[in-house]
Nucleic acid binder design. Sequence first.
DNA 1: CTTGAACCTCTAGTCGCTAGAGACATTACA
DNA 2: TGTAATGTCTCTAGCGACTAGAGGTTCAAG
Lengths: 138, 138
Amino acid sequence: MFSIGTLSRHTGVKVPTIRYYEQMGLLPEPERSAGNQRRYTQKGVDRLGFIKHARDLGFAMAAIKSLIDLHEHPDKSCGAATDIAQAQLDNVRQKIARLQRLEHELDRIAQGCDGAGFAADCYVLTALSDHNLCKTTH
Amino acid sequence: MFSIGTLSRHTGVKVPTIRYYEQMGLLPEPERSAGNQRRYTQKGVDRLGFIKHARDLGFAMAAIKSLIDLHEHPDKSCGAATDIAQAQLDNVRQKIARLQRLEHELDRIAQGCDGAGFAADCYVLTALSDHNLCKTTH
DNA sequence: CTTGAACCTCTAGTCGCTAGAGACATTACA
DNA sequence: TGTAATGTCTCTAGCGACTAGAGGTTCAAG
């Protein structure tokens, strides 16, 4: 049996976050010590590891709930799991595409000014004032 | 003089968001009609346009505050503005790099399962359970 | 002058945590 | 066994950048 602090060290998830996951229903309520402290089994470690891994990959908590549900019911079809993963992949690709547009525009704007002059002539500020100066949509 | 709704239509910023920006000190308190409704001038339109443009480029509100301050004080050095823009560019590049790592990993995971079988054999779920199956760090 | 859209303020909710207060439990060491 | 340090408990509130809704007032068109 692990205390919450030990679990935290094992998984790299902070103690308040573990309690938060429990409150949100991602983790089941664990057993308690005589003094009302949480006591976890290896199962708890595994489950939290699963959650952390999914969070690291950017899955939302609602998606993780669904994934856990599938994981706990091995007889269900795995189509839903691949759908969730594919949706997350699409999500990430969209974010990348948007950020790359921003990168180009920011780079252009930042290049336009050497930072040596006065704000009156700053291309950064001018560019922000006038959207027409932008080359791409964002 | 524009109403808040007209301002919203002109800039593409939603009405409650405009009021929120005012509350947060990004927009000055505008004049009011006899009946206490907000009335904006062209200056207000320009300023909100500036804010919207900066938000679209991902600048945080605190950064926008600084940028507005520089914009209002043309005699200040523009070094701060280029610094903020450069920091935002770095920020965006870091996010892109992280998301690209996630993209690779998610793609690999999603490819590993056709979604046709049962959850018990689903590679998506297996991969999430076992971090050792990952090729990259995230 | 009436109607309906737009506007007002205020509170609370979103997501995924994080921080802090004040009290209780456990553990390590003397 | 005593005590001190560390860990844990619950609860509340805060973050950023909005968004939603309630309940009431004002404006503009016909």
